[in-house]
């Protein structure tokens, strides 16, 4: 079977950085990398994305932090993590020693904090890219989340870009809870973002009708899983349409290769897998294989040819369908 399916060239680019394939782990969903490496070699993925690293260690939110929702879950982990010092001492070296391509996610409460984090990462070996998690409350703006505000997001991105090595791309991670995601995306690109990642979790609330209280200690939490996929596809679609040259990492509810393919057709050149890892520790490698098979079955020789393909005008035909054996 595999003999008649030609291999697909799965390489992709995050700005000028080549990834062997488009499948990465999503920030905050793949631990330190060690946990998943008990199940498969993380080096088989395009990249591993770390949890969001902050300056100081963070204990996160009280429990309950999670509740299952239809085709998804609501979480309020609150960026629990070891802080940059311990990350550089214990987590990044482990990934670097195994040559695992690593996207380091950073988060802060002020432009200065993001910048300080990026500075600390500047001479650390093993950083493939920096992902700026903009879904963090801005302490200088009464806790308003950076991602809600194009100007504030752009300021963070510009500052991080200015202290980051030229060969390390800066990826801005956007939230869907905004009136105009394209405006925020454009502001980030104008601020110097080399790529965009979307979507972070939209916020939701669940109420336990037995206890008559919110299900999460933090009341609201971030929704993830297949429930948010159409939202992710919509954001990727709109931003790719407006900014076709900007690389996009599509994130949201990817459980199968078909789901990943959907985001690619909408305009993503890489796809991050989050919640699916909770359901299936092998999800990321399975999705990679399924995506490759889906591309091959439709006659694609290169992943790059499928990126944004759904945007072509109706009736423009598809050489890929004609070539397909289906």
């Amino acid at each position: 079977m595999s003999l008649d399916v030609p291999a697909v060239d799965m390489r992709t680019y995050l700005a000028h950085v080549e990834l062997a394939n488009p499948v990465t782990t999503a920030a905050g969903c793949a631990g330190t990398g060690r946990e998943l490496s008990q199940f498969f070699d993380l080096g088989r993925l395009g990249a591993h994305t770390t949890r969001t690293i902050t300056m100081a260690p963070r204990a996160g939110r009280p429990t309950p932090r999670m509740t299952e929702t239809p085709s998804g879950l609501l979480n309020a982990v609150g960026l629990q993590g070891p802080g940059i010092e311990a990350f550089l001492g214990r987590e990044l070296p482990w990934l670097a020693q195994r040559s695992i391509r690593t996207v380091v996610s950073i988060g802060g409460g002020s432009v200065a904090e993001y910048t300080a984090l990026a500075r600390r990462l500047a001479d650390a070996p093993g950083v493939t890219a920096i992902e700026v998690n903009l879904a963090c409350p801005n302490i200088e703006d009464r806790g308003r989340v950076f991602a809600r505000d194009g100007a504030a997001s752009a300021e963070v991105v510009a500052s991080v870009r200015s202290v980051t090595r030229y060969d390390v791309p800066v990826v801005a991670k956007l939230s869907p809870d905004v009136t105009d995601v394209v405006a925020v995306a454009r502001a980030c690109v104008d601020g110097g973002a080399d790529a965009l990642s979307m979507i972070n979790n939209p916020l939701g609330v669940c109420i336990d009708v037995d206890t008559l209280r919110p299900a999460l200690a933090a009341v609201s939490g971030g929704l993830s899983g297949p429930a948010v996929r159409p939202l992710a596809v919509r954001c990727v679609w709109q931003v790719h349409a407006a900014l076709p040259g900007v690389p996009i990492v599509g994130v949201g509810g990817v459980m199968t290769g078909r789901d990943a393919f959907e985001l690619i057709l909408a305009g993503a050149c890489a796809v991050a897998v989050g919640t699916a890892l909770f359901h299936d520790p092998l999800a990321a490698v399975r999705i990679l294989k399924e995506l490759e098979d889906a591309l091959a079955a439709r006659g694609f020789q290169r992943l790059a040819d499928a990126v944004g393909l759904a945007h072509r005008p109706p009736g423009s035909g598809s050489r890929h369908l004609e070539e397909s054996s289906l």
């Binding site: 999670m66 979480n75 909770f278």
Partner: peptide, 16 residues
Amino acid sequence: EEAMACGIGVCMTCVL
């Protein structure tokens, strides 16, 4: 016993 989502240490929801 804590509410768990992944059981393998990646989701950080089961903490105490």
